[in-house]
Design a binder for these strands. Structure first.
Length: 433
RNA sequence: UCCCGGGUAGCUCAGCCGGUCAGAGCAUCUGACUGUUAAUCAGAGGGUCGUGGGUUCGAGUCCCACCCCGGGAGCCA
């Protein structure tokens, strides 16, 4: 390993001089006596040119042996050249083959089926499009940490192995020594609430697991979630934090991932309108709107996917639907004092059909009401002893939310399916690679 | 779990009312080409038509069962 190799992203600094680059061959073109190698190194793409009469015979000989995805090192003079993808080109004088690649490399620069691509996910990641998505995801993750750090939040890492606690839908189980069954966490929220009482403003960021048998473009069995929890925030504060947060992420992507979004052919004008405030529609009002639009929903039903689409279609930015009926929502949400049929919660729905990216609520801080909810939901009271302690020892108004990372990345990137937005997606019927 | 759609070459697909229907493009291989951009041009190889039954003189094609994949519903982020 020497330091004399240059990353493709830094090649512009070497124009007019010789440089060496290592990477993988993505395209080969040859015109008899002039040959082109397009090389990828993860930081960029470089075209290097080999002119038969200008190089030693062994260099030309080695070019003949190249196949797509061969790993190579090339050396030559770096020139600016508008004809080259990336604007910089190399006139190769030396070529070294590091690792050969058989001719059956499965990914081609053409359309492939989803099943095939996912079977080859470990290779699919090498494509330009997947790199662009991965870089947007990376930028959004960084922006998440910056947003909360700038605002004085403490990051708390919550357990992945848990006893039965949390949401209602499918749980993954595993044996846990003599303690019986452990469950993979579906949320860090309850731990986040404990941390909020200790540290004030906190957030968690980690993988969560749902054994839901969902086969849609919006679901993964393993996905990453950001869950802030803020002491003394009420539901309105909560929504203000959400719109500030979502806008921050979108702005950051527009600012720092222009090239990636271009590669993804994302219509950036549809992201530029994502600024606070986001429209807020109370559940009860939403039902009225839906009736006008011809929906058959009755008050008390949870909103279906079609209903959500009808509500989102009139807006150019995410919207909040807030204060749902109690029966449709989780036990920990605070009863609405102005309408006890409902709870103080909100869903944030992304535009363009990307659906729910956030679920949030003010938490029930009344000990007796929380006990009552646990009973009526038929949940095991003993499992919630420590959670009830948070109301027993100095209860406090608090609120938080969970933002699904992959759904957010999918929306910002404009990808048709969430599965492209995580390096190795876990789906109901897919554990490999 | 339910409702749709699909499974034909390595990949993406076409294949009409059952009868030259084993096809195309890409990829691969061979050859040509001194500026290509998913290069182009010429040629070649490549198939148990998801599996198992059935109908028929004859089945990628019609029927039944099963398997697998995709999308959606429900549930959720």
């Amino acid at each position: 390993m020497t330091s004399s190799f240059v990353r493709i992203e830094a090649l512009r600094e070497h124009v007019g001089r010789a440089a060496s680059v290592r990477g993988w061959v993505t395209h080969l073109r040859s015109s008899g006596k002039v040959a082109f190698i397009v090389l990828r190194d993860g930081t960029g793409v470089l075209q290097s040119v080999i002119v038969k009469n200008n190089v030693a015979p062994d260099v030309w000989e080695r070019f003949q042996q190249l196949t797509v995805e061969t790993s190579i090192a090339v050396t030559g003079e770096v020139r600016e050249d508008a004809r080259s993808p990336g604007g910089v080109e190399m006139s190769a004088t030396a070529l070294e083959i590091i690792g050969t690649s058989p001719t059956d490399y499965p990914i081609q620069p053409k359309e492939h089926g989803v099943d095939f691509l996912l079977d080859n996910r470990h290779l699919w990641l090498r494509s330009r499009r997947q790199r662009a998505i991965a870089r947007v995801r990376n930028e959004i993750e960084q922006a998440i940490h910056d947003f909360f750090y700038e605002r004085g939040f403490l990051r708390v890492d919550t357990p992945i192995l848990t006893a039965a606690i949390g949401e209602r839908s499918g749980l993954f189980e595993t044996e846990y020594f003599d303690e019986g069954t452990a469950f993979l966490a579906q949320t860090g929220q309850l731990y986040g609430e404990a941390a909020a009482a200790a540290f004030g403003k906190i957030y968690t960021f980690g993988p969560t697991f749902r054994a839901e048998k969902s086969k849609t473009r919006r679901h993964l069995t393993e996905f990453w979630m950001i869950e802030p929890e803020v002491a003394w925030n009420d539901s309105n504060d909560n929504m203000r934090l959400q719109e500030a947060f979502v806008s921050y992420l979108v702005e950051r992507a527009l600012e720092r991932c222009a090239e990636e979004l271009k590669e993804l052919e994302r219509d950036r004008s549809k992201l530029a309108t994502v600024v606070p405030p986001f429209p807020r529609i109370a559940y009860t009002e939403a039902v009225e709107i839906l009736h006008r639009k011809g929906s058959a929903i009755t008050w008390g039903d949870d909103l279906g996917a079609e209903d959500e689409a009808l509500l989102v279609e009139d807006h150019d930015r995410p919207i909040f639907i807030y204060n749902y009926p109690k029966e449709a929502k989780a036990f920990y949400m605070k009863e609405n004092p102005e309408d006890p049929r409902t709870v103080l919660c909100d869903d944030c729905l992304a535009p363009e059909g990307y659906g729910e990216i956030i679920g949030g609520s003010q938490r029930e801080d009344d000990y007796d009401k929380l006990v009552e909810r646990i009973k009526t939901e038929g949940l095991p009271m003993d499992a919630y002893g420590w959670y009830l302690d948070l109301r027993k020892y100095g209860t406090f108004t608090h609120a938080g939310f969970g933002l699904g990372l992959e759904r957010t990345v999918a929306w910002i990137c404009g990808t048709p399916h969430i599965r492209e937005c995580i390096a190795f997606p876990r789906l109901m019927n897919r554990l490999w690679p």
